[in-house]
């Protein structure tokens, strides 16, 4: 039996301990905000925050987060008004929007660690998150905006 706190709520899992956190979140816990893009930590669509760090949930076994705190896009802010979310809307970042939950979670982790990242630091920290629509310019602007106050 694995216990894990997700967005402040304790969840239990008694199935395969190697099941990835991604599919646990999506298919078992019904938290579909976290997206599947590659399954191999290559695209960042599945990024969640585990104890303040950005983690690719697709390659993280549910057993690896036992007893830890997981935050998904649904748990970032009760009304969706985290500064990063607000910045995203102010800059009109998304096109299709599919990768954006992962992008936002990555940006939140970046700003937690480095509240005033430089241009190059943003580009480097966000390089693990693919956006096939190509919203990078706006993502960078939104991270910058969130870091300077929305």
């Amino acid at each position: 039996m694995i216990k894990v706190k997700i967005n402040g709520q304790e969840q239990v899992w008694d199935g395969d301990p190697n099941l990835s956190l991604l599919w646990f979140l999506r298919d078992e816990a019904g938290l579909t905000g976290t997206k599947f893009g590659c399954g191999e930590a290559l695209c960042g669509a599945c990024t969640v925050i585990v104890d303040k760090q950005a983690v690719r949930s697709c390659v993280t076994a549910i057993s690896d987060v036992a007893g830890r705190e997981v935050t998904t896009i649904e748990g970032l802010h009760p009304t969706g008004d985290h500064p990063v979310q607000k910045a995203w809307r102010q800059v009109n970042v998304p096109q299709c929007g599919y990768c954006q939950a992962g992008q936002i979670m990555q940006a939140v982790a970046l700003l937690t660690e480095n509240p005033k990242p430089t241009h190059d630091q943003i580009r480097e920290a966000m390089a693990g998150n693919i956006c096939r629509c190509g919203c990078y310019q706006r993502i960078e602007n939104a991270v910058h905006l969130a870091s300077t106050g929305v």
Binding site: T32, G33, K35, E74, G80, R89, N92, P94, G97, I104
Partner: peptide, 26 residues
């Protein structure tokens, strides 16, 4: 702004992958 903007930034936007039905198999 696009009508889905708020839902996209909060994880509520509903894509093909997000449909879940009672008794659904994967």
């Amino acid at each position: 702004s696009i009508v889905d903007l708020h839902d996209i930034t909060t994880g509520k936007a509903h894509y093909g992958i997000d449909t879940r039905l009672p008794g659904m198999k994967y």
